[in-house]
């Protein structure tokens, strides 16, 4: 397959981004970003403004990393705005589990009495079958820092 020179240059930029995504697990700067403590909601109100800015930036960075992880690890079955293999995810944080309209849930999710808080999302992503036995979601996110980043991203696309 031949491409024009212009397309080739455009692809280099796109490929660089995707390449960064593939390397996310091992890139030191991303690892560091994932380990920046704190987030906006948990910040002490008395914290200095400069530190708050740093914290907010870290949260934003984490959401950006989470977006890449989301595409890589969740994108086969989910999207933000369309029900696919799994339900759509925009505004999922804070929502009652099993209540996205138009999606046909397993009985496990229909019965589940849980709200998608940070803690519940973390437990769900770590081991869906343990959190909601009988669920059709088998995919596990093993690394805690990756779960945290994905949750940060989901929060960034929720009201």
């Amino acid at each position: 397959m031949k491409t024009t020179t212009g397309i080739a240059f455009a692809l280099i930029a796109i490929v660089t981004t995707i390449g960064g995504l593939l390397l996310a697990n091992s890139h030191p700067s991303m690892q560091n970003a994932l380990h920046v403590p704190g987030n906006a909601e948990k910040t002490d109100p008395s914290i200095k403004s400069s530190a708050l800015s740093v914290t907010l930036a870290a949260t934003s960075d984490q959401a950006a990393i989470g977006e890449k992880l989301y595409q890589m690890k969740c994108g086969a079955c989910h999207s933000l705005d369309k029900n696919r293999i799994g339900p759509r995810h925009r505004n999922i944080v804070g929502k009652q589990a099993g209540t996205v309209t138009g999606f046909k849930y397993s009985n496990a999710l229909k019965r589940l009495k849980a709200q998608w808080t940070d803690e519940n999302l973390d437990a769900w992503l770590e081991n869906p079958g343990k959190f909601a036995p009988g669920t059709s979601m088998g995919f596990r996110v093993k690394k805690a820092n990756e779960r945290k980043a994905i949750i940060a991203y989901l929060k960034s696309v929720s009201k």
């Binding site: 086969a76 081991n127 995919f139």
Partner: peptide, 18 residues
């Protein structure tokens, strides 16, 4: 590419649950 890459990750990620 997005679907295939995602599917590879999906199958690997669900193995511990199967």
């Amino acid at each position: 590419l997005k679907l295939e890459r995602g599917a590879a990750n999906a199958y690997l990620g669900l193995i511990p649950s199967l």
